[in-house]
């Protein structure tokens, strides 16, 4: 089988000889799911104890469903229902029942529960919003935050790269605000701006603003002196230099900034949606926490991860189309 490092005799330590092997990637994913399966799903609730708890558990499950105002649609007990009853009945449930799973369904959801929750969320939605509404609400929040962060940040960054006064004026502000984790501002923003989007969007703006300032500043400062001098010698005015040379030349750095800002914003999302918004993936997760819906939490996390990967891919694609010269020549 041909390998890329075919004729190299020195490969250990040669970074170019190390490439990602898709098959090993598959193995990594299988290992992850295998561990999940083994620790939460494989062994199930012990058969011999099911009878002891089944009747009461069934009753409880029906009562709970009625209390939530949901239709009683009962077709068998889950391991989780049995486990809840077992724990309620005996303070020492784990020992008494020799409950055999490594991780109880109350600490981490099993694979079937999670798949069930995913099905439920995708068909019925969660907490009065469909999954698409939750996802779009989150995306829209992050996009608004990044738009305003860029709208303010890019001109400020450009000014900092072009003028000593602007550099001096903004330097202490940028250096002072940049290290503050957005989460640390959560409570302050809620009290200052109000609950819901009034605080969530400013928080996301805060997350991307400093990144975009620094990216635009780096982009301008990276302009090579020959390019600038050649432009003037070709008769460009200052305005033309800015529009036709400095800004296009800064695009690679600005795109890198966008990618970083997107990552940070998306990572701040759950925190931003703790400000009392009703819709959004982060809100969905924090509400699911209140009802101990571990399965919903995991589904929410997986959706956030997938969308994060897709958006990063989208920006990479845009980079390839808009700045094809990057990393070449």
């Amino acid at each position: 089988m041909a390998r890329r490092s075919d004729n190299k005799t020195v490969t250990f330590g040669d970074a170019a000889a190390v490439t990602s092997r898709p098959l090993w990637g598959l193995l990594g994913v299988i290992t992850l799911f295998g561990a999940w399966f083994l620790t939460t799903t494989a062994f199930g609730f012990p058969e011999e104890l099911k009878e002891k708890y089944a009747a009461v558990a069934e009753e409880n499950a029906i009562t709970a469903a009625e209390a939530r105002g949901e239709p009683v649609d009962f077709d068998g007990l889950s391991d989780k229902d049995l486990f809840v009853e077992c724990q309620r009945d005996s303070a020492n449930c784990d020992n008494e029942t020799s409950y055999s799973q490594l991780v109880s369904p109350l600490s981490f959801p099993s694979i079937p529960d999670t798949i069930g929750a995913a099905g439920e969320i995708f068909t019925e939605g969660y907490q009065n919003f469909s999954i698409w509404e939750h996802t779009w609400a989150s995306l829209w929040r992050v996009l608004r935050g990044m738009f305003w962060g860029s709208f303010v940040g890019i001109p400020v960054g450009l000014a900092m790269g072009l003028s000593s006064r602007a550099r001096g004026f903004f330097d202490p502000l940028v250096e002072g605000f940049r290290p503050i984790p957005p989460l640390a501002l959560l409570s302050l923003f809620v009290l200052t701006f109000g609950i819901g989007d009034k605080a969530a969007v400013p928080l996301l703006i805060f997350a991307s603003l400093w990144i975009m300032i620094i990216a635009a500043r780096a982009g301008v400062r990276n302009a090579s002196l020959p390019k600038v001098r050649a432009s003037y010698s070709l008769g460009a005015s200052k305005g033309q230099l800015l529009r036709k040379v400095l800004i296009p030349n800064a695009l690679p750095e600005i795109f890198t900034g966008l990618r970083v800002a997107l990552g940070v914003s998306w990572g701040t999302l759950v925190a931003a949606e703790l400000t009392g918004v009703q819709d959004g993936l982060g809100a969905m997760i924090s509400q699911a926490k209140n009802f101990s819906r571990l399965d919903v939490i995991v589904v929410g996390i997986v959706i956030i991860a997938l969308i994060g990967v897709m958006m990063d891919g989208l920006i990479r694609l845009l980079e390839k189309i808009l700045i094809p010269w990057q990393g070449k020549g």
Binding site: P226, K227, R229, L234, L251, W325
Partner: peptide, 26 residues
């Protein structure tokens, strides 16, 4: 600097975001 004195540098003075024609007609 003025357009009556054109400059040619060792490298790095062309505009990568423009094609050859657009560079020449800059």
């Amino acid at each position: 600097p003025s357009e009556d004195r054109g400059m040619v540098f060792q490298q790095g003075a062309l505009f990568e975001w423009l094609n050859v024609s657009k560079n020449i007609s800059f």
